[in-house]
Design a protein around this nucleic acid. Structure first.
Lengths: 211, 211, 211, 211
DNA sequence: TATGAATGAGCTTTCATTCAT
DNA sequence: TATGAATGAAAGCTCATTCAT
């Protein structure tokens, strides 16, 4: 899966294991530099250097600079999907919902720069790649919609379709918020406090919601 | 105020009224182009053309391309501040809080591109300018903190310091959310519906909040 | 005419006189360098230097390196057309035919490098430009076809259609020959001797031609 | 002969038969690619692929890319020489002359791309290689000079030294002409018609030539 | 003030060649 | 011998900025 996704970006190298390894180096270099100076200010030479090889080698594994950004973005979604799909949760219960939110926020806390890059640089991608990423983003919202719907179906929540969609967006956006503002927010909250406060407020907001 | 802020960006022109007028043309051109292609892809030549004068003239009113971005960002904050400061509201009441939120969201709905530009391109500014803008952003959060505190002081709300700060952030972030995702969200909600839903959920979330 | 042809290549400069002047410098630089090292080995930086200005300025007057080659080729055809169209000749007579040939060969003798470049580098042009140039080449052959037909019509020559076409080609090709091989041929002939010998042989070949 | 010529290009391989075989593959690949996209646009990677082996292997049999061009050019001359030397002709007769011309033109008709490559890319060769090729070209002219001189010596032709040299050039150049313009000329003539017309005109031109 | 031609540092990308396996 | 991953010099081109008019 993750392996194949990475291969969406063409390479002139034949050894697939090498591609996997090199691409990870490229992603790491991309995250490091893009968070420091943004996509446009980072040069391909710096990228190559940060990745630990020559500019020529860099271009054996990607075709354009934008491929690096794509690799970085794609990588995030694979992490999110893995994180939200792999853990066993109590489907349809409030506890399960809380679990999913926590899981998601913890992931963001571990890679806030990656998330920030994704949200700030997406439009630097070529059209096709941008749509691919935007779709993935919608998938993320859809995952939380699913979870919320399961709660409704199980009778643990009472929300209209419109409210569900908004609530799912809410969750995703508050995650973004921690990514964007971690530097400011962590002066007052640990990630655990943030999650708790946020989740309490969120649940309180939707619990007896009637519209 | 607005006048002086704009003058933070140096110009070699003496006539202050001319500066004000030209700068507005520059800001408009900047918004138009940055939202179309982003800050880095927009060239100073295009900027000058869109503003209606020559590249030479452009540089009579700014010193660097980044000044244009700064003017655009600064302009937004002036609008926000004006919008939240000028209207008469019932200080300390829930109604006043609602009013402020509505006012703020309506402003964002009128200039979503400007807000998006600001959030996506801030880090393209030089260090000093970036901090200036980030500070302004904190001021925005502070305005809502103030409003919330007034409600608490008036006994209309019961929130801890930490919860107030989080709530203020919440308001600002959900505004961002409409700016970023207007294209997707407006398929399901009018701005009024969004404001109402969002506000109801938000108030429900903080009303009986105890932490 | 010549002026407008040069303008087929786009420029970001407004002053038309400047374009004409700069383009001539570019053409001269192109001829000098392309004859020395060929189109591909000549770099745009060298081109700019040889033309007497910076690389940035070069690109104010052309859009791609290939434009320089196009300018050089186009220039040649303008010279040829001017040369064969402007001089008054006795239409339909052998003397007029001789005159035209002489005129053409003398032009080639004056700019052998330009002709060589044109014949050797045409296929380095982008498709559209290449067809434009190839068409111009056919026009050149057509000019001589016209002259020969006039001789036939006037009863001074007796040739079939096929022979006329071949003869016109012959003239053009022998011109090329002097351009390509001037370095070798001029060890034994002056241009005048070459013209005389060539013309005598050519006329002898077609005079009593019956096929 | 052919074998040794090819060995002018150094190789790190010992087995001479292997070299011969591999070099032929390289020549075929070179002709194919150079005619498609020209020498400079063809890459060594493509060359290797078209030849059927890896880039590493390619470089076991040549030292530089230019070697490939040299091999291609050299190959042509070997073909020409073989073609004009091996066939038994009636030395000193007009019939023998005609035979030689026909033989030569038929060869060109069989490999027009190769001839075109040679004439268009020669100056892409390094100095030394270029002179080697230019010398070979002169040899080709010399072969026809020899044939013409034999005719003169046998009393079948009456031409001055100067006219002989010119006539020899004429033959070679008209051959080039078919190579360069085959695409256009063959719309009106078969190669046989072309040879006949050309030869008739040529002989007529030199037969009663007096200068 | 207003103009726009001129500048050149710096960017992304290519590709001939090498060399460890 | 054969392979192909690695290299980095060098290419074409852009564009923010300046300055003479």
């Amino acid at each position: 899966m993750a392996k194949n996704d990475k291969l969406h970006v063409q390479s002139s190298i034949k050894d697939e294991n090498k591609i996997i390894a090199r691409r990870q180096q490229i992603i790491d270099a991309g995250v490091k530099l893009f968070k420091e100076k943004g996509f446009h200010r980072a040069t391909t030479r710096e990228l190559a250097k940060a990745a630990g090889f020559s500019i020529g080698t860099l271009y054996e594994y990607i075709r354009t600079k934008e491929d690096v950004l794509f690799l970085v973005c794609d990588n995030i979604f694979n992490e999110v999907t893995k994180c939200l799909t792999d853990f066993p949760s109590d489907t349809g219960t409030i506890g399960g919902l809380k679990q999913a939110i926590r899981q998601y926020y913890l992931l963001i806390d571990q890679m806030p720069e990656e998330f920030t890059i994704m949200y700030q640089e997406t439009k630097s991608l070529p059209k096709a790649a941008m749509h691919y990423i935007l779709d993935k983003e919608l998938e993320m919202v859809a995952i939380f919609e699913r979870i919320l719907k399961d709660c409704v179906a199980a009778g643990n929540l009472s929300l209209s379709e419109d409210a569900i969609y908004l609530a799912a967006n809410h969750i995703v956006v508050q995650g973004q918020s921690w990514a964007f503002r971690k530097w400011a927010l962590q002066k007052r909250y640990t990630i655990d406090q943030y999650i708790n406060l946020q989740t309490t407020m969120f649940l309180q907001g939707i619990m007896q919601f009637e519209n």
